[in-house]
């Protein structure tokens, strides 16, 4: 039995967007990508621009389906994952 492919929309903001060079993309996640942290590991292997964006791993924040999460958060059936620097509004 093969698991159904998981397509996830990835969004990037502020300097994460600038370093990766795009604001969004849709990817098919391998089955061993379980948490947000796993997703970052997997993205880093896709090219130097991702390595650059995630070089300061503990600085980059994430949201799963538009809710802030920690790196250990499971992706589950997430449809949208966003990566961004610490927020600076207000």
């Amino acid at each position: 039995m093969t698991a159904a492919p998981r397509n996830v929309r990835l969004l990037y903001f502020a300097w994460v967007r600038e370093k990766i060079g795009r604001d969004a993309e849709t990817v098919e996640l391998p089955s061993d990508v379980v948490t947000v942290s796993d997703l970052v590991d997997w993205l880093e292997q896709r090219g130097p621009e991702y390595g650059e964006a995630f070089a300061r791993r503990n600085v980059v924040r994430a949201a799963v389906d538009r809710t802030h999460v920690k790196p250990s958060a499971p992706l589950g059936a997430a449809r949208e994952v966003a990566f961004f620097p610490p927020v600076t509004g207000g």
């Binding site: 949201a63 961004f84 927020v87 600076t88 207000g90």
Partner: peptide
């Protein structure tokens, strides 16, 4: 409200 807007709401200043 201001403290949480500054630390939770997804805005970025350049």
């Amino acid at each position: 409200l201001m403290d949480f807007l500054k630390t939770r709401a997804p805005f970025w200043k350049k």
